[in-house]
């Protein structure tokens, strides 16, 4: 139920957006829970609603955190 799937926001029309989940799956998504979202943003979608924007640099931050936590030099090679 709390499954959320990341996808690329490709179109915004008021509170409704179109999200590309890859492999040709494009769905209408409700953006009402987000402060702001623009085409090109990655969003996490749960039950038809985008619940958070996931900026690409944050993904890099995750990897940084892992690297710090594990302190493995070859982590991101």
């Amino acid at each position: 139920m709390c499954l959320a799937v990341p996808g690329l926001l490709i179109e915004v029309n008021g509170i409704i957006g179109k999200v590309d989940f890859g492999d040709g799956t494009i769905r209408k998504v409700n953006l009402a829970l987000l402060e702001k979202a623009k085409p090109g943003d990655y969003v996490l979608v749960h039950a038809g609603y985008a619940i958070q924007v996931v900026p690409e640099e944050y993904v890099r931050e995750t990897i940084e955190l892992w690297r710090k936590v594990i302190s493995l030099e070859d982590f991101a090679k």
Binding site: M1, C2, A4, N30, A32, H46, Y49
Partner: peptide, 12 residues
């Protein structure tokens, strides 16, 4: 049905 992840869409 659902936790805090789902409730906002119901509220909206």
């Amino acid at each position: 049905v659902g936790f805090e992840t789902t409730a906002p869409s119901t509220a909206y």
